[in-house]
Design a protein around this nucleic acid. Structure first.
Ligand code: MN
Ligand code: MN
Ligand code: ZN
Ligand code: ZN
Lengths: 149, 149
DNA sequence: GGTTAGATTTTGAATCATTCTAAACAGGGA
DNA sequence: TCCCTGTTTAGAATGATTCAAAATCTAACC
């Protein structure tokens, strides 16, 4: 069931879009709502199908457009694994991703500042990095008592 | 100019293939030679074009087949960045990748054991990782005095 | 209230890396 | 030589994403 955005989330959406001269539209609001509802790193198709439940006329191209817009605004991150469909993540805190080989599910893994620092430190002089992507592949046993939920 | 494989590299190829019941073929040897000649993380098309110089009848499908075989044998790694074409890397040492935003080139970054350890340590209990991928995005100024060359 | 310019959405076609299929090919025994 | 099996090949198919053009919406202005 898709809840509406909280006042806070709506403002966040509104302001982030405004910064790049763009507006809140019903489609953007629906797509953003879907992303915040289940932070399970959905693919475009998954977002599309979820959003259509509440906005039947929504088109796939619009979902692509909205997600691209959000990435441009810094509202969400793309998450890629090999050449599978791109997934989308509204968690803006620095974090790595863990892909469960068995379920295919993607989990967020908190990334402490000192680990980021130790990673940056392996770069030879002259290498200036503005983004680091870290992904684990393996199995996540047991329940879901982790940051994703 | 594409050199032949060293005796050592040929044996490595032969034995790795043999382990999974496969043989050295002229096509596989050509593709492997190309991978070892310039460790610049070529795409399939780049491998194809380089290999054709020495084996004009080679087909693109065969390059895909050979590379898939090598990945299966553990002879090479795939390197992906977002949804760009997959690149191939014959460096089997644990290493991260640095993508230069300006040139598009991919550089190998040595990955010390203690950094790997500190990364594993951020996984919550129950998360068992068998592979970690790390990629930096940024600019690599200056010469090429780094592990790639 | 109507008009208009610009942004947004929609549909359907195009792209393109990759995978698939089925037919040739190779080569080491029987 | 003939067969068996793995390999290669050409071309078709796939599928996520992007593109192009027309339709729709919105907000500002008259
Ligand atoms: Mn889980
Ligand atoms: Mn360089
Ligand atoms: Zn995430
Ligand atoms: Zn590499």
């Amino acid at each position: 069931m898709i809840q509406n955005l909280t006042e806070h989330d709506r403002e966040n959406l509104q302001e982030s879009l405004a910064k790049s001269g763009q507006k809140v539209t019903p489609q953007r609001e629906a797509v953003f709502t879907v992303l915040l509802a289940d932070r399970d790193h959905p693919t475009v198709d998954e977002v599309f199908n979820r959003a259509r439940e509440v906005m039947p006329g929504l088109s796939l191209a619009t979902v692509y457009n909205c997600l691209e817009t959000f990435v441009g605004c810094g509202l969400v991150r793309q998450v890629n694994h090999e050449r599978e469909s791109t997934r989308y993540c509204p968690n803006l805190a620095p974090h790595a991703h863990f892909r469960d080989k068995e379920t295919g599910r993607v989990h967020d893994i908190e990334l402490p500042a000192d680990v980021i620092k130790s990673l940056r430190s392996i770069l030879p002089p002259g290498f200036d990095s503005e983004a680091i992507e870290i992904s684990f592949l393996g199995r996540a046993q047991g329940g879901d008592a982790h940051p994703t939920l």
